[in-house]
Every structure is written in C-alpha cells, then in structure tokens.
Amino acid sequence: MTLFDCDSTLSAVEGIDELADAPEHQRQIADLTEQAMDGDIPLEEVYGRRLELVGPTRDEVRSVKSRYKANAVPDAQAVIAALHHLDTETWIVSGGLLEPVAEFATWLGVPADRVRAVETHFDPLDGDWWDGSTQPRYADHGRCELTTTDGKAEVIRRSVTSGGRRLFVGDGVSDLAAADEVDLFAAYAGVVARPAVVDHAPVVITSESIAPVLALAIGPGRVRELVGGPHDHVARTCLDGIDDGALRFNDPDLGRRFAASAS
C-alpha cells in the first residue's frame, strides 16, 4: 500500500494558501503554512487561523480542486494508475480540506473512501441567505487529528486498516511524524525541500517527477517488468530518474539493500 500526502506532494500547491486572494492575506497565510510545514510552529495553532483570515465560501473551497489539478506534480496520475495495475492500494492522508482533496483524488484515480482530510463546515445563515443567491461561508472545521502536527500518525494507525507493506510519501514535518506508523517514509522534495524533513527521512525523492515512488513501492525489479506495457512511460521515467540520482538514501543500509535489489 502507498500513502500520499496531498499538498506540495501530489500537487505543487498548498490548498489553503490558494484560497487567499488579497495580497496581504496571501503573504500572511503562506507564512503560517510554511512555518507549520517546517515545524517552527505547531500546525494546530495555525490551522483555523488561516481559514478564518480568508472566510472562504463553499464554492471558493470547491474551486481549490482546479488548482490541485492544474498543479499536479509530474507523473502523479501515471504513478497511481501503475500502482493500481499492480494491485497496490493507494491512499491520501492530507491536512488539506476534504472536499477539494477528495475531488483531486478522484481525478488522480484514488478512491474517495481512501482519502482522509479535514472536513469544513459552512454557515448557511450568513448574509442574505433566504433567496439562495448568497453562498454559505466557512464557519469552522471538523475536529480532527489531521489539523495537528502529530495527527497523521494517529489517523494512519486508526483508519488505514488494510494490510500490506506501507510506504508513505510526503514533504512536511507532519508527514515525517507519521514515519513510525509505516514501513517506509519517503520525503518528496520535488516541490519543496524542507531541511527538517529531508535530513531525517530514510530516503528522499529529489526529482520533480514523482515517478521514483514506484520503485520504492514495488521494487525496481517489478518496475522494469512494466516497461513495454501500458505503463511503459512512467516506468521508464522512474528508472531513468533513479539512474540520474533521483533517490537519495539517508539510511545507508536501506540504500545498500535497494541497490542490491536493483542490480
């Protein structure tokens, strides 16, 4: 099974940052997100604050889906299709907003029931609500571990119940914090390389393409078997990337074992 973070991992954007349209909000919110992802302040301190600053409408929250899609990282759809082809389950465990993340997941091919993210509640009684022309605005978010820095570990332990070896791919400190709940944590640095994460993850994907995930999920041998089939392109991108040093092993033992299985 392969689990993915969403923001700055499957898509190059941070969903909540995309909601801010006023420039002063953009800066403020991006700063808060950045500090939380770097581990400088706990996520739970900034989670609600960012949304309250913007006060998005329901449609504005929905429209984040388009931003995710337009900024999907290279080969994201192809990696997920190849994993499914090999009967490897895919999950998304995200601190982003559930509705756009689930929509993006559907587009990627990840089943909606294997998406964990944060529910948003809207206030339908905001503004001139009775004629239907006013959109409900953000009221609060569901109380949920995913809004905390340590929450992903808990969510993976509790709700990701199906068996199999687990690989988790992410970019932030909240992803790294879940490393103990999975068999392997891979830091994806294709969008942003956070020292607090890439220095501590056992393995780092340094290429912009997320295709090298395939080799970590199923092993380089099985990736080679995909060459020439319907998933040829992503398999080649993965193998070429590895040849070009797209995987950096901080854990030398893991690196040795990977090299052995690759040869």
Partner: peptide
C-alpha cells in the same frame, strides 16, 4: 464547470 464533481465527469 468548477462546481461539478469529478465523479459526474467520470
């Protein structure tokens, strides 16, 4: 259509 779900499109 920014407000139509991916499921409907699919």
């Amino acid at each position: 259509d920014p407000f139509v779900s991916e499921r409907i499109g699919r």
